[in-house]
């Protein structure tokens, strides 16, 4: 790891102040479970880390009386998984948190860091491959080893977004607070993530270098929500998703009133499967509907060889998620 300066602010103001006019390359450090691996591989080599851990007030989970939830960026994934209120009221989020990494990663890794983590594509992670994400000319996955790459929303880069929390939080309609030295903005999490074709190819989010993600806000779910997170991974012990489904569902007797279906592990962003949601809205809660929703979820999906399996896999996971709400 290259040498760097460790800046330990004790207030959010000092933290964003240190990002305001960077005279050298600066990165924000929270749990470090992704950033330090990137630094060890020389993928990023900041001169300075702004360490958020001494900043008060970012490590709390708070519910309002009405059921809205605010999660500080420094809340660990493990604390989220174990929080009684989250388990009871936001099941999809608790399940997603429990599926992240290993116990060691969950006890240190943070919610903010999980949302801001970089891609796991092995070309990106190899310090020897100068891929599109690192200023090169080519996404090597297209003609190379693409078993783990995107079937939806790809091009010109075919990374998949690795976060488990992101699909769950998008399904819950979450927003995030992004703070800089001159103010703050609220961004719907669904718009926080950017497709490779939409913005800076080197980034996955709209977060600027002078901003810190400080909080995640989950609105109070409408009454009667059922939700679940179904994840399929290659290795049973712990792994990133080959494909995953975050489902939030509201039923009216035997019919579906409304559903939100968000896919993980298959697209460069948490992928809102709107055709699946449309197939579910107002339809009977039964196997034939689940099959139509599954078809809708992979509408437009395209494999390019080794990742073709993700299409039937995703369809199966959508049906499994719906069945589990029966």
């Amino acid at each position: 790891m290259k040498s760097f300066t460790l800046f330990n602010p004790k207030s959010l103001g000092d933290a964003v102040g240190a990002l305001a006019a960077p005279t050298s390359s600066v990165k924000v450090l929270a749990g470090g479970q992704d950033l330090l691996t990137e630094m060890k591989e020389h993928l990023v080599e900041p001169d300075k880390l702004v360490n958020l851990k001494g900043v008060p007030g970012l490590d709390r989970i708070e519910f309002t009386a009405a059921g809205a939830c605010t999660i500080g960026a420094l809340v660990t994934v493990g604390a989220l998984e174990e929080h009684a209120g989250v388990r009871e009221r936001l099941r999809v989020l608790a399940e997603a948190a429990g599926s992240v990494g290993s116990p060691q990663i969950r006890s240190v890794g943070t919610v903010g860091g999980n949302l801001c983590q970089r891609p796991r594509c092995w070309y990106y992670r190899s310090e020897h491959a100068k891929c599109l994400k690192k200023g090169g000319d080519e996404c090597f996955s297209f003609s190379g080893q693409n078993k783990y790459n995107a079937i939806l929303g790809g091009g010109p880069s075919y990374i998949v977004h690795p976060s488990d929390l992101a699909p769950a939080l998008v399904a819950l309609g979450a927003t995030v607070t992004l703070k800089c030295s001159t103010g703050e903005r609220q961004v719907a999490l669904e718009r926080f993530f950017t497709l490779p074709g939409e913005g800076d190819i080197r980034r996955e989010t709209v977060l600027r270098d002078d901003e810190v993600l400080t909080h995640v806000h989950v609105p109070a779910p409408a009454a009667g929500m059922q939700s679940t997170y179904v994840k399929f991974r290659e290795r049973g012990s712990y792994d990133f998703a080959l494909a995953s489904v975050a489902l939030a569902l509201w039923r009216d007797g035997a019919r579906v009133k409304e559903a939100r279906v968000v896919l993980g592990g298959v697209a460069p962003i948490p992928w809102r499967a709107k055709a699946a949601e449309a197939a579910l809205a107002g339809a009977a809660f039964e196997a034939a509907t689940f099959a139509r929703a599954a078809d809708g979820a992979v509408q437009g999906a395209e494999g390019f060889g080794q990742n073709d399996y993700k299409i039937p896999l995703t369809k199966g996971l959508v049906q499994r998620a719906l069945q589990s709400c029966g």
């Binding site: 470090g32 691996t37 290993s102 060691q104 990663i105 006890s107 240190v108």
Partner: peptide, 27 residues
């Protein structure tokens, strides 16, 4: 592994398991 993959460096920090290779000592 020194990359938070293998678990050989597991220690406890405030009673919780953590990978010592992915923690900064000064922190």
């Amino acid at each position: 592994c020194d990359r938070g993959n293998c678990g050989a460096c597991t220690v406890h920090v405030d009673g919780k398991p953590a990978y010592a290779c992915l923690l900064l000592a000064a922190d």
